[in-house]
Design a protein around this nucleic acid. Structure first.
Lengths: 334, 334
DNA sequence: ATGAAAGCGCTAACAT
DNA sequence: ATGTTAGCGCTTTCAT
């Protein structure tokens, strides 16, 4: 393994000089610098991270907390975050956590054993100990979810976005609109509120029977939720799903029952994941600016790590209603 | 930050003794041991990983090399690998690499800067320097892909699986069978070989015009590939796609042209990703045992790291043809 | 502008 | 059974 001293010896300088070159410090003779760079290229030398971390007393590592069964939306999100983080010189460590408290505890333990520079949340952790630790150690943290923990957050306005989606259905003449919600996450709760808000604004009576709570944000859960809904009653002409994956599962259940989309039932999703534009029919949905959310959360964390605190804690990014083929006017009979 | 010397001083012993306790070595007085443990608990001391890694010359970290735009199949795979690795006491570091040589070089540099215990490949790297480095440093490596680099591998028989898929179409009476291939990866080449093998076995003449090479394993690429195919000729009744995501894109293109699946054209995918069972029609495909591939590659790497080498370098796991709704008998006219 | 030297926190070989 | 010592590879004063 080639080390900084090897390079120094080969060039005939001290390790300090090589270090200065590596870190772009000034006060280095241009000629020597060229020499050093040449040898570095020849030998393929790369600084040892552990040694650097130790002397610098930090790890250049960011923890990313993400659900164990992360969906396509989270996948797209974390890939942009990872890329951004690497470009800032961090590496990222993933903490996959299940939706139970023992898994959360385990995650916290692993978190402690690392000397993280910062943490990005793509998942909602319930455990107060988790937040207490981060608070005590002053480790910077940024979230991409709604939360009540006064954590710097980059997100969209989930309530308004949901309301926009439901209003789209209302504008098409739908009155009996069901919702497949996912209330185990607070953003799911916000989306449910948005659904109710739109109904209220249109003077449509709320009806709890028209709402099912899916246990996960997966297609499978969406399929079961829709089956459940269809068992209760067929007296609805539209569905609003709290995520595209839920919507995809719901569509499967409808198709299995011989229902036509959107002629019999219109459906609106949430997220605008890649695949939604490939389904048949193409899914109408609320687009989250995934790329921007990822980019800005990485940037925000980077700023925090370097001691810059933004005035506003929460950044709200714009969403967009993408109208495709899964929604149409309600038929007069309905 | 509390260090091992702090603990040693508080208890009145040497750092070595504390180290011995931390690492469960014997030859420590039971009483002292208890003392030390007590202080450790009180102070919340956690060993500094960077320091430990440096002196031990290893990191307890496994690198996972994965395509930048990893697809659903790889996502499911790496999730199971990660889980398994954590259970063995490693943490995993992801190396997202694009399909170009500068990205591969960057990946190699990052790889060098970490003292990885091992590497798992979910992506094919072309650069010889990459393999040379791993070889020189004797870092254990396990792959989940076909390759010619004599690397221990866990995979399925891609050629045979492809052949099985095409035989399924042939058995349904199809003769004009196209393929959407992805030859930039060697497993893609194997699948193409399997396609040709099946045709040969059925006495159907090979026709290069019936094969398109997609540039990526994505739905988008699949859609363009199918458009291309349809532009060339409509004289085919079935398609074999090198992945489910390609198939999904291809289906989109067919639907857009008003073609019915499977009545007008049958289609077979490859991988059996979750979503394939939600599409309309449900996709007939070749299932890869994702969970087993993930589990066994993590286990194999763990063994290698601990100096155990298996006799057989490559493990071939069984695939399975999953017949669903996207394939049916060829109509007599075709 | 550059080198010498100290030290980050830990482990292991070597004493005792 | 336990302490002493010597690094691991790097950065950073502090000299010169």
């Amino acid at each position: 393994m080639v080390s900084i001293t090897d390079i120094a010896q080969k060039v005939g300088v001290s390790p300090s000089t090589v270090s200065r070159v590596m870190n772009g410090k000034k006060y280095v003779n241009a000629e020597k610098k060229a020499q050093i760079l040449k040898i570095i290229a020849e030998t393929g030398y790369v600084p040892n991270k552990a040694a650097r971390d130790m002397v610098l007393q930090r790890s250049f590592t960011v923890g990313i907390v993400i659900p164990d069964t992360f969906n396509v939306f989270q996948r797209q999100l974390f890939s942009t975050i990872e890329r951004q983080l690497v470009s800032f010189g961090y590496r990222s460590l993933f903490f996959f956590v299940k939706f139970d408290s023992s898994s959360e505890k385990q995650c916290l333990d692993r978190l402690k054993s690392e000397k993280l520079d910062g943490v990005i949340m793509l998942h909602e952790i319930k455990s107060p100990e988790f937040y207490a630790y981060l608070d005590n150690t002053k480790i910077p943290i940024v979230s991409t979810l709604c939360n009540d923990n006064a954590i710097p957050t980059i997100k969209i306005d989930d309530k308004q976005a949901a309301s926009d989606g439901v209003h789209h259905l209302i504008n098409l003449g739908h009155r009996r609109i069901t919702m497949i919600a996912g209330c185990h996450f607070s953003f799911g709760l916000r989306r449910l509120e948005g659904y109710y808000q739109a109904l209220d604004e249109a003077g449509i009576e709320r009806n709890e029977k028209l709402v099912v709570d899916a246990q996960q944000y997966s297609s499978e859960a969406g399929m079961y939720a829709m089956r459940d809904l269809l068992l209760r009653s067929r007296d609805f002409s539209a569905v609003f799903a709290a995520s595209d994956e839920l919507a995809i599962g719901a569509m499967r259940a409808m198709l299995d029952e011989g229902l036509r989309i959107p002629e019999d039932i219109s459906i609106v999703g949430f997220d605008d994941i890649d695949i939604s534009n490939y389904f048949h029919p193409r899914l109408t949905t609320l687009r989250q600016p995934i790329f921007e959310i990822g980019e800005q959360s990485a940037l925000k964390l980077h700023r925090y790590i370097n001691g810059q605190t933004d005035a506003e804690c929460t950044t709200v990014l714009p969403h967009k209603l993408i109208i495709r083929e899964s929604t149409c006017s309600a038929t007069p009979s309905r």
